[in-house]
Design a protein around this nucleic acid. Structure first.
Lengths: 137, 137
DNA sequence: CAGCATCCCGTACGATACTG
DNA sequence: CAGTATCGTACGGGATGCTG
């Protein structure tokens, strides 16, 4: 899945007018299976990915803080998800060599860009969730 | 996870200035486990949810078209995902009682609102995916 | 405190076959 | 064409226990 330079141009440090169309995301008219976008999408939309990114949206948090903020996450998934987000360059890990050890997690500039797009989405979902689950359309 | 009326106000038919902060999404300082938002989020961010919504973003598509557009999806998951999206009121199913049968899927107004938030996100991911997977943080 | 390692299970998902 | 039904499996993910 390639993306037109047009779209790339629309994504500056700030969120621009953001008129993105499906065609820009299509590869040969399809949502191609073998494209990096799918992989990243899977990371971000993994069960805990969005939640963690959100939790970090307002500043760095420690391991234990994240555990509490993101209710229900297990240590295993916390570690695992944080690592993939770190490898993807969305989250930064800062270790303080003290005793007891202290580790802080924060968003990278890239991560902050992503979250900027995530927040409106989450806001909308949050605002409409109850209505959606209430029943029929 | 309740949402402040403030956020709700920010989400009209059109996308507004969209300044959403984490606090607006928090319940008692946490990303609460037992909230409708989590459920909807799981539906939308399910493996095929985003892809299907995107595929429908530019107009209705038939069952078979969707299969082709969303590369790699199985019939089972196509049916399953479409049904949960339909129940959530995001997708509408239109059956033409002809032979052979013809079924069209399209976004509801609600679905179109959601996709409006999804497109910029996908645009960004698409634009940055390769870079992210390329390597280092 | 901040984590790996291990075990184990549920279910999400895919492949295949059949139907209106 | 547009699905359901059935089956089997891989992997996501939780529980527990150990380490620097």
């Amino acid at each position: 899945m390639q993306v037109s330079t047009q779209v790339r141009a629309a994504q500056g440090d700030q969120m621009a007018g953001d008129v993105v169309h499906l065609e820009d995301l299509l590869d040969d008219g399809r949502l191609s299976a073998a494209c990096p976008t799918r992989v990243v999408l899977d990371h971000v939309t993994s069960k805990w990915g969005v939640l963690l990114l959100l939790a970090l949206s307002e500043g760095s948090q420690r391991w234990s803080e994240l555990r509490r903020t993101v209710e229900g996450i297990s240590e295993k998934m916390l570690a695992q998800t944080l690592r993939t987000l770190e490898v993807d360059g969305l989250v930064e890990r800062t270790v303080a060599a003290t005793i007891p050890p202290r580790v802080d997690y924060s968003l990278t500039p890239l991560g902050r860009e992503l979250v900027a797009h995530l927040l409106p989405l989450m806001g909308w979902i949050s605002a409409n969730a109850e209505e959606m689950l209430a029943g029929r359309a």
